[in-house]
Design a protein around this nucleic acid. Structure first.
Lengths: 249, 249
DNA sequence: AAGATTTTGATAGAAAGTGATTGATTTTCA
DNA sequence: TGAAAATCAATCACTTTCTATCAAAATCTT
């Protein structure tokens, strides 16, 4: 995992929670304790946070501007671009499924209002309600780290619906949380949702995503990939089954 | 638990109540008395509070607006008291249902960790996850104003579970949002949950609640009412079917 | 492709935080 | 007032976290 990505994750956690434990960051980023410590030292030097025994704390001074996370963030822009394009595919009256995950969440501000959204992403709830978009939540187990609803019950609950379109994050939540291997149970939800949908779209803001994860999701059904960069090997390999839309600038 | 997290809790308690007992802080933070004492010493050094025999007191130096704090405190206390008592009824290993609503939400900080929670309250999600309490969410329509999951799907989703105990707010969310008439669909969820539970508890922090709402919930099944004040007419009227626990001080 | 540089993970000794105990001090209440 | 109860500061043993260092792995240069 790249250094700036880790830093972004750390700052984001900090922004959300105020204080974070080192061990949590280790789990979150799949890095060693040493690496996290070095990150924290560095971020403290740059006045982004304050180290405390056991972890780090947000500094309340003034440097809390939105610029803070933004500054440390280089990956935000492509994500927004992709999300905006994906939203443009949604038409009034549609019933869509939104996968849990940060890239998909970015779609919400751009969605039309006269639609119905079904989701398993707890983090999507507030932004959707704020926009007054009618929303159904899948029932089931709430997975702490990714705020996704998963499990057997979730599948049952999901199968009550049918969708015009569904939107999935490639590494879904894992992009954001640093997993390289998709969670088995979340993958099952993804697959099921794709099966219940007339059209499926996969959003990826990672220029390099693991071939395995890619295949798992896209190979099973027809799907369109929306990304900002894609090596030609992948294009050749999957072109036959999937449409690939590369969104630039 | 990280030191600043504990300090935050202490100061928060102090802000709400003006004075806090050490033992309460021990319970609240799951730390030892020694640790709390050390925290208090430190916070006093930093001029955040004044230590007094048995606990700590807010210092009235500057940042206090007595009128506002007092105002917010008046309705807060009974609610917390009731919620704390209700939490004490939950045993390790229990599977419980938590109704959507502000009074029930107050229970969360006091719940034991080795339980499973099922809820239809979206506002409960974050506090439960923060406490690492395993949580299942009912699926269905997310009602914007109350952040509750309701609807036909919710009933279906709910009926997959069985509970040891369930906890309902009387006017539920309506207390907070100023409704006097319970929402029909939310009432259905309440009734269904009570039916699926071995024991049912109704929490009320309103000394006067409407007879209609009361009867709707309590009359259908055996249930215990937990409240801080109850006119004797109600007691006489419902004593036969329900247990009433009045929590004072 | 070989070497230099950076990043990473592991380890050991130092430092800090924690919980229990003990005896001193304060409060309570008869 | 005086004895019992509650609260307190001080200390000890124990656990967790921290710093510093080194070698392996990854990345960059030339």
């Amino acid at each position: 995992m790249l250094t700036p990505e880790r830093h972004r994750l750390i700052l984001q956690q900090l922004k959300e929670k105020g204080v974070v434990k080192i061990q949590d960051l280790v789990d979150l980023t799949n890095s060693s304790e040493s690496t996290i410590r070095r990150d924290l030292t560095q971020l403290e030097d740059d006045k982004f946070l304050k180290r405390i025994h056991g972890g780090a704390a947000r500094l309340q001074g003034k440097l809390q501007e939105p610029s803070m996370v933004e500054k440390a963030t280089k990956n935000l822009q492509p994500k927004k671009r992709i999300a905006k394009y994906a939203s443009s595919l949604v038409e009034e009256g549609d019933c869509i499924f939104l996968d849990a995950g940060s890239t998909v969440m970015e779609m919400i501000p751009y969605l039309p209002k006269n639609i119905v959204v079904v989701t398993n992403g707890l983090m999507h709830v507030k932004p959707l309600l704020d926009r007054d978009i009618p929303m159904y939540l899948i029932g089931g187990y709430a997975k702490p780290k990714t705020n996704a609803i998963i499990g057997r019950g979730a599948l049952t609950s999901l199968e009550l619906y049918r969708f015009d379109k569904c939107f999935m994050g490639v590494n879904g939540i894992h992009t954001q949380f640093g997993y390289t291997t998709p969670d088995q149970e979340e993958a099952m939800i993804k697959q099921s949702a794709i099966a219940l949908s007339r059209e499926a779209f996969v959003l990826s803001d990672e220029s390099k995503f693991s071939e395995i994860a890619f295949a798992k999701i896209a190979d099973l059904h027809e799907a369109s990939i929306i990304t900002d960069e894609l090596s030609s090997e992948f294009q050749d390999q999957y072109m036959s089954k999937t449409t690939i839309k590369v969104v630039k600038e």
